[in-house]
Amino acid sequence: MKKKIIIIFFILIIFVNTGVYAEPDISLFGKDVNIEDSENPEDYVVGFEILLVLTILTLAPAILIMMSSFTRIIIVLSFIRNALGTQQTPPNQVLIGLALFLTFFVMAPIGADINENALQPYLEEEIGQAEAIDNAMVPIREFMYKQTRDKDLALFVDIADVEEEIVNMEDIPTKALIPAFIISELKTAFQISFIIFIPFLIIDMVVASTLMSMGMMMLPPVMISLPFKILLFIMVDGWNLIIRSLINGFS
Rank of each mutant, 00 (worst) to 15 (best):
166 I>P: 04
104 F>E: 05
40 N>F: 06
28 L>F: 08
36 E>H: 03
63 I>A: 07
75 I>R: 03
179 P>D: 03
148 T>L: 04
201 L>M: 15
185 E>K: 04
230 I>E: 09
144 M>G: 01
163 E>L: 09
95 L>A: 06
95 L>C: 10
106 V>C: 05
24 P>N: 15
191 Q>H: 10
31 K>V: 06
163 E>Q: 15
246 L>T: 08
116 E>Q: 15
216 M>A: 15
62 A>P: 00
102 L>F: 06
215 G>N: 09
18 T>I: 15
172 I>H: 03
100 L>Y: 14
21 Y>T: 13
82 N>C: 00
63 I>P: 01
203 I>W: 12
88 Q>M: 10
179 P>F: 01
243 I>C: 02
8 I>M: 13
39 E>A: 12
244 R>F: 12
148 T>W: 00
41 P>G: 06
27 S>H: 15
22 A>I: 13
236 V>T: 09
81 R>F: 05
17 N>A: 11
240 N>R: 13
96 I>L: 09
75 I>K: 01
243 I>R: 02
148 T>P: 02
250 F>G: 02
174 T>G: 10
161 D>A: 14
231 L>Y: 15
242 I>K: 05
92 N>E: 08
114 I>V: 14
236 V>M: 03
141 R>A: 11
209 S>C: 00
23 E>P: 00
166 I>H: 07
29 F>R: 08
76 V>S: 00
78 S>K: 06
26 I>G: 04
14 I>Q: 13
121 P>G: 11
113 D>M: 08
169 M>Q: 14
35 I>G: 02
37 D>S: 07
185 E>L: 04
132 A>L: 01
178 I>Q: 06
14 I>H: 13
225 S>P: 11
101 F>C: 09
246 L>N: 01
239 W>C: 03
192 I>V: 09
29 F>H: 14
103 T>F: 02
172 I>G: 01
41 P>Y: 00
169 M>C: 09
183 I>H: 03
5 I>E: 09
106 V>K: 05
195 I>F: 11
192 I>R: 02
56 I>G: 08
150 D>M: 11
130 A>S: 11
53 V>A: 12
71 T>D: 07
31 K>Q: 12
61 P>C: 09
139 P>V: 05
167 V>E: 15
87 Q>I: 12
91 P>H: 09
161 D>E: 14
53 V>D: 07
210 T>M: 13
36 E>L: 00
225 S>Y: 06
236 V>H: 06
242 I>R: 06
175 K>H: 14
218 M>Q: 14
17 N>C: 13
180 A>G: 05
73 I>H: 00
20 V>W: 15
24 P>R: 15
179 P>N: 04
204 D>C: 05
172 I>T: 04
173 P>D: 10
64 L>K: 07
198 I>G: 12
71 T>I: 10
180 A>R: 05
100 L>W: 08
68 S>V: 09
199 P>V: 07
44 Y>C: 02
13 I>S: 10
184 S>W: 00
138 V>E: 07
221 P>G: 07
79 F>V: 10
10 F>A: 12
163 E>V: 14
164 E>D: 14
110 I>N: 13
77 L>T: 01
64 L>D: 09
112 A>F: 12
154 A>C: 07
189 A>E: 01
23 E>F: 09
34 N>R: 12
129 Q>C: 00
152 D>Y: 04
241 L>F: 05
219 L>D: 10
151 K>H: 08
55 T>Q: 03
112 A>I: 13
113 D>A: 14
